[in-house]
């Protein structure tokens, strides 16, 4: 009879055992804020479809301190999502070759963050323009 008896170690709590995995779980956790914010917007959209009074009621509800606190946390979490999304991008996208040289990781991340900043400012400018 074989004396082999390979031992399989349990995976319990693996994400707590390495700072790299802790960070991974944190950036995965930003999804809860993305979901919650989408839910807030969805409620807003439904209220919009129900008429002016409903919409104004929704707008007013957003001034509650709880909502403001939530949006402050969501802003932090989703900004962190933006950062980590473009940080991992050099690993997730096919290589980009410019002038015979492969684009370094920092250039891909930097470009992504710059585009995100431009998109954000563009959106703000659009809403600003719509308001006047």
């Amino acid at each position: 009879m074989s004396k082999r008896r390979p031992y399989v170690r349990p995976m319990d709590g693996w994400w707590r055992k390495n700072p790299y995995f802790v960070e991974y779980m944190i950036h995965e956790g930003t999804a809860f804020f993305v979901a919650a914010y989408a839910a807030v917007l969805l409620v807003g959209l439904v209220r919009l479809s129900q008429g002016e009074a409903a919409w104004n009621g929704w707008l007013h509800s957003l001034t509650s301190p709880w909502y403001v606190l939530f949006h402050l946390a969501a802003l932090l979490a989703i900004t962190y999502h933006t950062y980590t999304w473009f940080k991992i991008m050099p690993r997730t996208m096919p290589p980009v070759v410019v002038g015979g040289e492969r684009l370094p990781a920092w250039a891909i991340t930097g470009t992504g963050l710059a585009v995100a900043a431009a998109a954000g400012i563009g959106l703000l400018a659009f809403v600003w323009g719509m308001a006047r």
């Binding site: 790299y20 991974y24 991992i88 690993r91 997730t92 996208m93 290589p95």
Partner: peptide
């Protein structure tokens, strides 16, 4: 793969296996 990326981090030969996996998702 959930794009943890740690495989590429520990690779002693800078193979970047995470990149291979994710290019193949595409």
């Amino acid at each position: 793969c959930t794009a943890v990326g740690y495989c590429s981090e520990v690779c002693p030969k800078h193979v970047d296996p995470a990149n291979a996996v994710n290019q193949n998702k595409t």
